[in-house]
Computed example of a mutant assay.
Amino acid sequence: MYAKETLKGRVALITGGGSGIGLEIATAYARLGASVMIVGRNEERVQQAAGDLTNEGGIVAAMRCDVRNYDEVKGAVDATVSRYGSLDILVNNAAGNFVCPTADLSVNGWKTVIDIDLNGTFYGCHAAYPHLKQSAFGGSIISIITMLGVTGWPGAAHAAAAKGGILSLSRTLAVEWGAEGIRVNTISPGPIGDTEGVQRMYIEKGNGDLEAKKTALGRFGRKQDIANAAVYLASDLGSYVTGDNIVVDGGRWLKYVAN
């Protein structure tokens, strides 16, 4: 859909880039001309992903990084700049979640998800800031959240609070850093059928048709749908978009409200 040189010359760092939506975004970026660093806690996974994309002709590297550790996040940012010479795009995709009634949620369970999702996003933004403001293209930060962080998420209060916090953080930074040429946006995916999470939580349990019907379009999305939005926000096509939350959920949240 996009011209092959849409992201030519840009450098992107993607957390949680070894699988799922993060890998799909990395794949799209590499195919459209960006130089990409993918990071994650599973080094074998991110190295395999980077190798596969390199074999396709992409410019992709990988390293281990736990986003709960600021020093590791800063190290990943510094390694990206050292390897490619700049940093233009940061995608905060790393996330953790599990289903648990709030009354049964342990303090450690709460802290773990907040650390990965919310703190990890802040660490990425903070570490990337001095480089993004020097971007020749204008810096772009894209964080993956969910509308369940806006409407509430019964059974996942920790993830809801984290994702809601990321939205507020992103809009705050959009204003604070806008004058320095940094755009800050979020993407809210709906149920994406070709992800491990949807397969495990819905399809394998026999609830796939029911969950699909909860969307206005009556079907699951694809990882490519999220990658398309991430390309738009990272490129000149979205050069006047900041502080926005692009909802790519097939109208699920609207149907939920309407019902």
Rank of each mutant, 00 (worst) to 15 (best):
D194V: 07
G178D: 09
I142V: 11
N228G: 08
G190F: 02
R219Q: 11
S168V: 10
A174R: 07
G178S: 04
A162F: 11
G165T: 09
K213Q: 15
G208R: 05
P130C: 01
A156I: 13
T242G: 00
L148W: 09
Y202H: 12
T151L: 14
I203V: 15
G165R: 07
G251K: 00
G149D: 06
T146S: 15
A156E: 15
L167R: 13
G208M: 04
I141G: 14
E196T: 10
A212D: 07
Y129R: 14
V241T: 15
Q134I: 05
R222A: 11
K133Y: 05
K223A: 11
L237W: 13
G251V: 00
M201S: 14
G165C: 07
Y123A: 00
R200K: 15
D225L: 00
I144W: 02
S168I: 05
D236L: 15
E176C: 07
Q134K: 15
I187Q: 04
M201E: 15
E180R: 14
G139A: 12
L148F: 02
S135D: 09
H158F: 05
G221N: 06
G138V: 10
D236P: 13
S170C: 13
H158C: 09
A234D: 06
A160I: 11
P191S: 10
H131Q: 08
A157T: 12
V198Y: 01
A162R: 07
K163A: 10
V175M: 11
D194R: 04
S235D: 13
A162G: 09
E211L: 12
I166W: 07
I182G: 09
S239L: 13
N185Q: 12
S140F: 02
S168D: 03
Q199W: 03
D236V: 10
F137A: 14
T146E: 09
D225I: 01
I142S: 10
V184T: 11
R200F: 13
A234Q: 04
E211C: 04
H158W: 08
G208N: 06
I182T: 14
F220W: 01
G165W: 11
V241E: 11
A216M: 12
E211K: 15
V248C: 05
G139H: 10
F220P: 00
L210F: 14
F137S: 14
W177L: 10
K205V: 06
A179N: 14
V175D: 07
W253C: 09
V150Y: 08
K255F: 06
G124N: 08
P189E: 03
P191F: 07
H131Y: 15
G164I: 03
D194M: 04
D194Q: 06
